Computed example of a mutant assay.
Amino acid sequence: MNGYPARAVVDLAAIRGNVASLVEHAPTAQVMAVVKADAYGHGLVPSACAAVEGGATWLGVAQVPEALALRAAGVTAPRVLTWLYAPGAPLREAVEADVDVSVAAPWALDEVVAAARAAGRTARVHLEVDTGLGRNGLTPAQLDDLLPTALRADAEGAAELVGLWSHLAFADEPAHPTVHAQAAVFASAVRKVESAGARLEVRHLANSAATLTAPDLHWDLVRPGIAVYGLSPVPQLGGPDAYGLVPAMTVEAELATVKPVPAGHGVSYAHQYVTPRSTVLGVVPLGYADGIPRHVSGTQDVPGAPVLVGGRRTAIAGRVCMDQVVLDLGPAAADVAGDRVELFGTGADGGPTAQDWADVAGTISYEIVTRIGARVPRVHVDTAADAAALERDEVGQHA
């Protein structure tokens, strides 16, 4: 939206570099970059293309329409897997677009096979096994019941059984006993499926956390999500730097209004923040309608989420509103309307990060970046390409 006074700047060079680092972390496996949820809020197609340039040979999405959007945009080289849908999903279109489809329930296999027959081509199927997460996926007993049907569909050419996969409940706590308990259940499922005659192309279990901390769980393919975008899935063990990652998103805005107020002045709804001295307030035109959590509101005793203004840190003062937040800029502030405010970014400039915001909100960095609203424009930049172009210009000037 032209003229919107805020933006989420996404550095595609960071995404490329993050995937390259993940490839190094998993040298024995292929890398699937998970780009579900509009690439965790970073922009589906540009992020997917950057991930492929960084070395991803697979892309993963939750919803079928996300997979179809990638194909429609011309993202045809990598394999794409989709894994979450309800009855009646556009599976025929997915099969026709050469999208791999996960099967997590008996009815899903029936619909995938029907879609393949309607499309006149073989569906590529991954069976998802619930090894202990208790979410989507076939229980081991359901796998026993469904496997003969899946193998018949494979033999008939309707559905090629190319993958088996699962998802971990406690990967962000690598020492948790469930991690290797689930791994044992998964290994048993792999043996069962392969002993029954399936010729699996990929077996995959590791998400971002397991990709970085559990090389014994890499199997044939790893599925990093949040790490692709430069955020640590295990912040208690190490930040992005510890894993060769760089946050790709910086959310910034312009101050809308700046004004002096006396001591004792209430700020925002319910006056849960009252100015302790004469000071200057600044309004940032972003609020919970843009994905700013109300949980990062500031009170008299507890500062809200940190922000960077004019090279110095301050914090949200008072409640987050639908379209705006207020900052206490300090009594000596010389900021003016239109000055840049960085809500979160890489941290390299001394500013806050998405993890800093997550800590204030009592959540995870995944939620902070994915909830940035659709009305906030995504501006895709490529700092590596810009740097290369600048270097070429400088060489040309001195030639």
Rank of each mutant, 00 (worst) to 15 (best):
R378G: 03
A169E: 10
G225M: 03
V320F: 00
H218S: 12
V45M: 12
I292G: 00
V283T: 14
A158R: 06
H126E: 04
L84R: 14
V35K: 01
W83L: 15
A198D: 10
T346N: 08
R191Y: 00
A116Y: 03
G287P: 10
K192V: 08
R319S: 10
A56G: 00
H42F: 09
V101D: 01
L221M: 11
T213C: 12
E111M: 03
T178H: 11
V31A: 01
A181Y: 06
D241A: 15
L84D: 15
A94L: 08
R203E: 10
E111C: 04
D301C: 06
G244F: 12
G134R: 10
E53P: 05
A315P: 03
P331G: 13
F186D: 00
V267R: 02
I292M: 09
M322L: 14
A51W: 02
V325L: 14
P27D: 10
Y269E: 09
A77K: 12
T28G: 10
A248I: 04
Q30H: 15
L308E: 00
Y269S: 11
L70M: 02
P27R: 10
I292R: 03
A73S: 13
D98P: 02
R371N: 14
G330P: 06
K192M: 12
T275Q: 06
A56M: 05
V280E: 03
D359E: 13
E173P: 02
V296A: 07
H176Y: 04
P174Q: 01
E252S: 14
R117F: 04
V202A: 11
M1K: 09
Q300E: 13
A37I: 05
V103Q: 05
H204N: 14
T28Q: 13
D393R: 14
T275F: 06
G88I: 04
M249F: 06
R121A: 05
H204Y: 11
P233Q: 01
C49W: 09
A94T: 08
G157M: 02
V23D: 02
H295R: 15
A354M: 07
E160Q: 13
W165L: 08
G244L: 11
K259D: 12
A69Q: 15
C49L: 15
L237G: 08
R392L: 12
H295E: 14
V341T: 03
G350I: 08
D130V: 01
A198L: 09
A150S: 00
R191E: 15
A97N: 13
L68F: 06
V34Y: 01
G244W: 11
V31G: 00
E128P: 04
Q272C: 09
L70W: 02
T213R: 10
P27V: 06
A387G: 08
A317E: 03
V320P: 02
V23W: 07
A210F: 01
L143Y: 06
G88L: 01
A6L: 06
Y243F: 15
L68S: 05
R313G: 12
S188C: 07
P78F: 02
R319A: 13
V325I: 15
V261S: 02
N136Y: 11
R392P: 01
L329W: 05
L12C: 03
